[in-house]
Amino acid sequence: MYLASTAPAASGSAPARAGTADAAFAVEFEGLGRSFPSDRGASRTVLRDVSISVQPGEVLAILGTSGCGKSTLLRIAGGLDSATAGRVLIDGTPTVDFDDRTAVGFQEPRLLPWRSITDNVALGLPRGTPKADGAARVARLIELVGLSDFAGHRPREISGGMAQRASLARALARNPGVLLLDEPFGALDALTRLKMQDLLLDVHAAAPTTVLLVTHDVDEALQLADRIILLGRSNELDGSTIAQEIVVPGTRPRDRGSAELAELRGRLLDGLGIDRHGQARGVETTTAIPHFPY
């Protein structure tokens, strides 16, 4: 029902051009590490040896338990934080502080409370966008996320889910080569979350930007991503690194109930330390899913 209203996006036609990226960029993590100084002079390592290359236009989901450093990884990719080891290359060149080739969708909406939704989304426009073009693009994005009726409202006058959608529209207004999403739907209710996931798929289908999506929701990762990495800690070493890497089979939009995904889901949950109850416990089922390394 919700999708029907933004239907043109699904078929890849007009309104979705709003989010068109001129180019999707490759992202390369090279031996990335991050440690924070701790109180007693020692340092606490959060990430170590993260190396992965993300293709232009790929959707990569980053899964992990809370506190495993997945947000830190994303922040480093966007230049909001800097690595203490290794580096990140976007389109072949190292990231700079607050890199303008990326746009961030934060965990919280982070809208300016004194601005209308329209003006908040306009904040995402790249500097130097001609006024008329910018206004038209903002209006199209607001329509795309289904907030046209609330364009003039202030953030506190709309619901949390709507604010999160406005925040996504603001990130898309940036026209980013790399879209960084930090648990963007984490605070939403279950139904709204599913709708937002479909919305993101529509946007991505229309304008294939590279997406790094941090999430703790296994189903969300399976639904949205081309590839999933699971960050985890091995016993002897401090700091998380890539514990599993899974290529998600099938093309989007995927059937949320497919058996293949159910098996992957079990494996990922296992990797997150969640016991898989019932008959399947400890047993791989018969579906042919490749194991890492492929």
Binding site: G146, D149, I158, S159, G160, D189
Partner: peptide, 14 residues
């Protein structure tokens, strides 16, 4: 669509 929004939006809006 608006109706739908209102249904899913949280009670603060109302």
């Amino acid at each position: 669509m608006t109706g739908n929004d209102t249904l899913t939006s949280d009670p603060r809006t109302a």
